[in-house]
């Protein structure tokens, strides 16, 4: 009896140590992903590759959220940012032409580069100074507010969505129907309309994405 109890306690403490170590490992991997992705966004030549590197950064951020027990934020981070926002970026890049040469050598304003470097330096110093404030960066895991009753926040959110907010949740689907129909309406080229001007054409096809935009922002 005593032996099993002590074994359980031993397992518990070693489990905690293991958890601590693995949390650090997850943090390190996440941080590496964030930094690699961020560097890739700036350094890569091809804008499509840059956008994909942004996905790596966002996945790294999601990983850090999981490390901090913010499961829901992690899921939202991946669904909204990696899933929707970056795809939107890619759409824009594809629309504008991937292989188009941009004249970025000529600077529109002379002071831009030194000013950017100065601002970056100020922010870096600021962060370093703030990290010295001991109660601000204590190294302890983040403490979220007390949840009302048992269950974690994903569970709570799920219960809220499928009980009290069932109807709003279901009705959001109406926006998808509208978005599909609206895209057809605004981008369809009707057979009997040769007189349509090309300018109005471009304007309308540009607007086709609008309902989808607002849907994403919801």
């Amino acid at each position: 009896m005593l032996a099993t109890l002590s074994a359980a306690m031993l397992a518990d403490t070693s489990g905690q140590a293991l958890a601590h170590a693995s949390a650090w490992a997850v943090f390190a991997v996440g941080a590496a992903m964030i930094l690699t992705g961020a560097a890739g966004v700036i350094l890569l030549r091809n804008p499509v590759h840059s956008a994909l590197m942004l996905v790596v950064t966002l996945f790294g951020v999601a990983l850090e959220f999981i490390d901090e027990s913010a499961d829901f934020l992690a899921a939202v981070q991946i669904i909204v940012y990696a899933g929707a926002v970056v795809i939107l970026f890619l759409f824009v890049i594809m629309f504008l032409g991937v292989d188009r040469k941009e004249a970025i050598a000529a600077e529109p304003t002379k002071l831009q580069k030194p000013l950017a470097a100065l601002m970056g330096l100020v922010v870096l110093v600021e962060i370093l100074a703030l990290s010295r404030v001991d109660h601000w960066a204590s190294g302890a895991p983040a403490q979220s507010g007390v949840l009302n009753g048992p269950g974690d926040n994903v569970q709570k959110l799920g219960q809220a969505v499928y009980t009290g907010y069932l109807l709003p949740f279901e009705m959001t689907a109406a926006l998808l129907v509208i978005a599909v129909v609206a895209t057809v309406v605004l981008s369809k080229r009707s057979a009997g309309s040769p007189e349509r001007s090309s300018q109005g054409d471009a304007e309308l096809s540009g607007r086709a994405g609008d309902p989808e935009d607002s849907e994403v922002s919801l």
């Binding site: 959001t172 509208i178 978005a179």
Partner: peptide, 29 residues
Amino acid sequence: LIMLFLGLEIMSISLYVMAAFHRRRTQSG
């Protein structure tokens, strides 16, 4: 208020598209 906002958006987004429905008229777009 949440239901009200959702209804507002569903109604309005459809109306935006309906306003732009006449594709050949510039005023409509």
